[in-house]
Design a protein around this nucleic acid. Structure first.
Lengths: 219, 219
DNA sequence: ACCTGAACACCGTTCAAGT
DNA sequence: ACCTGAACACCGTTCAAGT
């Protein structure tokens, strides 16, 4: 039977009266007198997704976690979809772009890091691939583009390789949302498979690069 | 305002009393006296997914379309997830494996065909990548494996290439579930991008194949 | 056995009413 | 302006009751 908690004793709104107003970063604190900040909501949502997945994240559940009524959350965020977009963006903001190594080593490390990160937020990869237009994060996009451009890829090849990498990434990390499927592949298997496929993809990109350089030389 | 149809005049169950009992294929007809066959349900669900997508497919909506009560559908199919699995399997049963051309031409044609097919069922690719353990159809898996084996790929490379292709396929076709995103990429762009990425992936696979053959020769 | 239709326990979203 | 809490229009799933 599922744990059923009564509303009794549930902590109500903490007014964070003991929060020093010293650290007021760029929109870090509410800035106005409002008790609930957008940042607070996104952080709460992100934690919730990590714990219970995208499907488990409920506007009601989030509101309870934040200690406010349902309407309060909706006052700050128009829709669950927008909220998840904010979460995804928040996440990708933390991606570190590798600076050392050859172009393919850098791409590989970047992709593996992103895959590891995203895999800790069940259902988010699936959501993102379904909303690719808006949530393919600019930071990641720019990072990949830069690495490929520096390696000597032409504009068209950059687009193709970048798209292939992104599709591969989301296709891979969309899997195993259901915790029920324990029997299939271990996470070690998946990780190995992911790297193997990445190597194949990058080998293909290398062929493309060499072909275009050969073409340039003989032109 | 959304169209709101009253229950008035909605066609109730057709008992198909005018159905000749002549054509009784392998479980084609109910066989027993039951009015609702599993096949009928899957076909109805498939049509519904084509029309309104996976999210638009509702157990209630499907029941209405079939002319039965909600409980009747649930009597045949335990869960919406299982229903979608059946739909996916039904779909993949129609995949034609290309017989002509080099191994990479055959793989490419197969993948493009599957992508085209799946793209006509919005949300199904996303569902499948989230349920990959159960819905990666055996037919497709076997087809890819056979083509690669005939081309001379080793067992491990077959696994890697097959997985890469499948992840790429689902990652790609999970996109654009929301009809709202009209502004981004046209379907022509997507198609071109898909083929481009496929070429890169297959070029990488070719490198792998040549490397293993070189290794074999010098051994 | 097969089916009906109501009920249960949820959702996302809206909104009048309060402060 | 910001928040509350009830309400609306749905879901998937279950189940006593009918035939």
């Amino acid at each position: 039977m599922a744990a059923r908690r009564k509303a009794t004793g549930r902590p109500r709104r903490r007014r964070k009266q003991d929060d020093q107003a010293t650290r007021v970063g760029p929109s870090a604190a509410p800035a106005n007198g409002s008790a609930l900040s957008d940042r607070e909501i996104v952080r709460g949502a992100r934690e919730l997704v990590a714990e219970v997945g995208v499907d488990g994240l409920t506007m009601r559940r989030l509101s309870t976690k934040l200690g406010v009524a349902l309407g309060a959350t909706y006052h700050h965020v128009p829709t669950k979809r927008d909220l998840l977009l904010l979460v995804a963006h928040d996440l990708y903001g933390e991606v570190v772009v590798p600076k050392k190594g050859t172009w393919d080593q850098r791409i590989k490390k970047l992709m593996v890091d992103v895959a590891d990160m995203v895999s800790r937020y069940p259902g988010l990869a699936a959501f993102m691939s379904a909303n690719a237009d808006d949530s393919m994060p600019v930071e990641l996009r720019r990072a990949v583009t830069e690495i490929l451009a520096n390696a000597g890829f032409g504009r068209r090849d950059i687009n193709a390789v970048r798209a292939a990498l992104f599709f591969y990434l989301t296709g891979m990390s969309s899997g195993s949302v259901t915790p029920a499927s324990t029997r299939a592949l271990t996470s070690v298997d998946i990780h190995r498979l992911f790297e193997d496929g990445l190597d194949i993809l990058l080998a293909g990109a290398r062929v493309r690069l060499e072909a275009s350089q050969r073409g340039k030389r003989s032109r």
